[in-house]
Simulated scan of single mutants.
Amino acid sequence: MTTPTSDPWQVLRAATRARVALGRAGDALPTARELEFRAAHAAAKDAVHAPFEPGLVREALGGADVLCVASAAPDRTTYLQRPDLGRRLADGTTFPPPGDGVDLAVVVADGLSPLAVHRHAAPTVTALLARLPGWVVAPVVLASQARVALGDEVGAALGARAVVVLVGERPGLSAADSLGVYLTWDPRPGRADSERNCVSNVRPPHGTGYEAAAVTVAALLNAARELGASGVALKDEGPALGA
């Protein structure tokens, strides 16, 4: 129960990271809130334009075997202006001959927040692979200037039955380092977004944790293997998914 002198908006502010109940000074925002907004906006812009550093991800993966590729977008400006180029591999990209029985390709893509990838991709990959005993996994692919659909071409080139793409999500004013994890069964160029499943906002402690994301994605992969499909045909029904 609130008292006449207590702040009636405090409960709401404590329950969300959204910008609510900011107050006002005259007909404007209080100075502190305005400065917070500008700082959050600057952080979002910096996240989008930060250079992707594959070496950081490789090191965080413990020196695991990785492949580095790039999309058809030659630079960051082109990537932002031409989303279609970020969905295709650069001309001349080659892969080792696909092995027999590759179950999964894992692609780490910079997306719209390389910052998110640097912070969260490696622990998410590590947690996920630990929950896939018996799965044959291709070397992790690190993709620059890349969007989600690039994983379809990578997965097909590696002969994988499924692809998981970890990508930096578009920054917002409350989250500049949010990682998305997209799953597609039977990857090949031309797959639609409706044929994917997604676990979003992987960014502990304020978003989904690494272990929670790994549990959900592993359950989706196992269910997709049984069903032979992903996307709208495969529903994430929480604990029932892995039952």
Rank of each mutant, 00 (worst) to 15 (best):
M1D: 06
T2Y: 09
W9P: 01
L12M: 09
L22I: 07
G23E: 10
R24F: 12
A28L: 05
A32V: 13
E34C: 02
F37T: 01
A43M: 05
K45V: 14
K45M: 14
F52Y: 14
E53Q: 11
P54H: 06
L61V: 01
G62R: 09
A72P: 03
A72S: 11
A73I: 14
T77L: 08
T78C: 12
Q81R: 15
A90H: 04
T93F: 02
P96W: 05
G99I: 00
D100Q: 11
V102K: 04
G111N: 01
V117A: 03
A122H: 07
L129H: 02
L132N: 01
V136G: 02
V137M: 01
P139L: 00
V140N: 03
A143I: 14
A143K: 00
A146V: 12
V148L: 09
V148E: 11
D152P: 12
D152N: 05
D152H: 04
G155K: 07
G155S: 09
A157G: 09
G159W: 06
G168N: 05
R170K: 12
P171Q: 13
P171W: 06
P171T: 02
S174L: 09
A176K: 01
L179D: 12
G180R: 07
G180F: 05
Y182M: 13
T184A: 15
T184M: 13
W185M: 11
W185R: 15
E195T: 10
V202K: 04
P205A: 11
P205L: 06
G207H: 08
T208V: 15
G209E: 08
V217W: 08
L220F: 08
A223D: 08
A224L: 05
R225L: 11
E226T: 01
A229Y: 02
G231L: 15
A233T: 03
A240H: 03
